[in-house]
Every structure is written in C-alpha cells, then in structure tokens.
Amino acid sequence: MNKTALIFGVSGQDGAYLAKFLLDRGYSVYGTSRQTYIDNFYKLNISHLVHIFNVNLESYFEIEQLIISINPNEIYYLASQSSVAMSFKLPAETIKSCTLGLLNILETCRNHQVKTKIYNAGSSECFGDSLGIPICEKTIFAPKSPYAIGKSSSHWLVQTYRDAYSMFVCTGFLFNHESRLRPDTFVTKKIISTAQRIVAGSKETLILGRLDIYRDWGFAPEYVEAMWKILQAQEPDDFIIATGVSYSLKDFVINVFENLNLDWEKYTRQSEEFFRPNELLVSRADPSKAEQKLKWRAQKTMPETVKCMLYELDK
C-alpha cells in the first residue's frame, strides 16, 4: 500500500524538495501553504502531483478536519516564518508560526489516537553560539532570536508529547541548508543573485552585514532525505542534521565570486544596516549520531552547494 504524507509548509524550499523526494518513492503527497504562488513546484515539475490546502495553522478545527480527512502515515511540520532577521521585526508572528500549528497537530493526533509519525523542523539556532564547540543533540539550548525561541519551544512540545503520550514525534535540528529554491531574502541567495547580475553587466554593489560569522552550509535536497529517514527509524528520536564543516560568510562570498571570475572586494561592502541585534557568531555541528543511527551523511559542503546554486542543480 502506498504511504500518504502531509507536509505543512509544502511550498517553501524544504517542502518542495521533500514533496518531490516522497513522490519519487510512491507517496501520495498533501500539503498546506500560506501562498497561492507555488513557483517551486513548477521548477521541480511536481505542480500537478501535490494536493494543496490553505489552512489557518492557529485553528485547531481546520487542522483537525484536514488530518482526519487525509489520515496520513507521516506528517512533516515545516510551516514557520524561517528568517532569523525577520523574526526581530515580527517576533509574535514568528513564535506563533513555530508553535501553534504544531501544537494543533499534536493535539489532534492525541485526541483522535491517530498513529501518524510526526516530524518537526527544528533549527541550529536553538543552540545559540557554541563558541566553536561542535553542537550535538545533548547541547543545552541558548536561543538568541525570536525565531530561535520559537523553534526551541516547538521542540519542547515534541519532548512533552513524546514522553507524556508515547507519540512518534521527532525533531530534526537542521543547520543551514541552501539551494536554487531559496528566496533572495536569504543572504546566501542574495549573494548568488547579486554576483550573477554583476557578471551579466550590472554596476551594483553587494551590501552585507558581518562577514566573520561561521555557519555549516549544506545542500537542501540532501537534508530532506534526512527528514524522511528520521521517521523511518524504529523509535522516535532527535537528530542534528549538518555537514560537520563550517565556513565564514566571507568564505562563502569569495567562493561565489571566484566561481564567476570576479574580484569580490571590488563589488562588496559592509553596512551596519544588516547587523542583527543579537548575532550568532560561530555555528559548528557534530552530525555523527545521524550517520551512525540513520546511515545519513551530507555529501556536499559549502563549495559544492555554491556551485549547485550558481548553476541551478538539484543533485
């Protein structure tokens, strides 16, 4: 029998790649989206295969009706405001988007004794600045933004419902992962898009905030496989999903411009306008648990991911 998956936040980068990954494995895929614009589906040639619903995540009734009608084998909760910078401007909306929809899903499954496996999208931001020490699943949370607070709260919901009600619910703490589907509001895609316009003849300057921040950048299509593997495990558990290699934002910029044979210093400058109120300087990961228990390991680190973004590759 084919499995059925319900993806909350299906039209974003991760949702679209996850939908394609599941469709390729014979799943029937349903999803929710705040957007009627589903360009990512057209880019992946799956627009005719995903059943999309517009649901108010803050409405228990709407989520209950959707889950009961679909009766999915797996639920993936990816529906949250995902920009750290934007979370400082929209703190209440960001925290609600991380938590209320997930809570309504958990309550629906508990109240109706639905045995669906549930994946929650956590974030490396939950752990704050590790001061260069690799983050593992036992690292204490130290959120530094409204987004990180929301993601930390969502995981505490996961822990509570898993422990109190023996539900199969898991969190994947995904470190930064990029692709051609990223919107230009993300700094990685902003760098890529600006450099491509410059090489095509634009006279603009790339303006950035701090260049000395370190992140673990991976390739999004690989990370959705990790999400799926988390729900295929025998027991519910939580996992760090990352490459294990961190680079500075300066390294990222240099890599992009070198790929296009451009002098990065000629076309970039820094501005305090793009400094965050509370910046996470160094983010490093220890993804060994995922490799040991899920047999999952990232194949692409930052340099390979940059090339995939520049040349719009999905593998």
Rank of each mutant, 00 (worst) to 15 (best):
G12S: 08
Y17N: 12
F21Y: 15
S33Q: 06
Q35W: 00
N45W: 00
L49T: 03
I52K: 08
N54A: 10
N56V: 02
F61A: 05
L66P: 05
I68D: 13
I75W: 07
Y76P: 08
S82W: 05
F88N: 11
L90F: 15
K96I: 13
C98R: 06
L100C: 02
G101M: 02
L106E: 03
T108Q: 06
N111K: 13
F127T: 12
G128A: 09
G132W: 09
I133W: 04
K138Q: 15
P146Q: 05
Y147D: 08
G150Y: 09
L157R: 06
L174Y: 14
T188R: 02
I191F: 03
T194F: 02
A195I: 08
A195W: 02
Q196Y: 00
V199Q: 10
A200Y: 04
G201T: 02
K203W: 00
E204Q: 11
G209C: 04
L211Y: 06
E222W: 01
E225K: 12
K229V: 08
L231R: 08
I240P: 03
Y247H: 13
S248C: 02
V256D: 02
E258T: 08
E258M: 07
E258F: 00
K266G: 04
N278R: 09
A285C: 09
D286K: 08
D286Q: 09
E291R: 06
E291K: 12
Q292T: 13
K293E: 15
M302K: 03
P303W: 08
D314N: 14
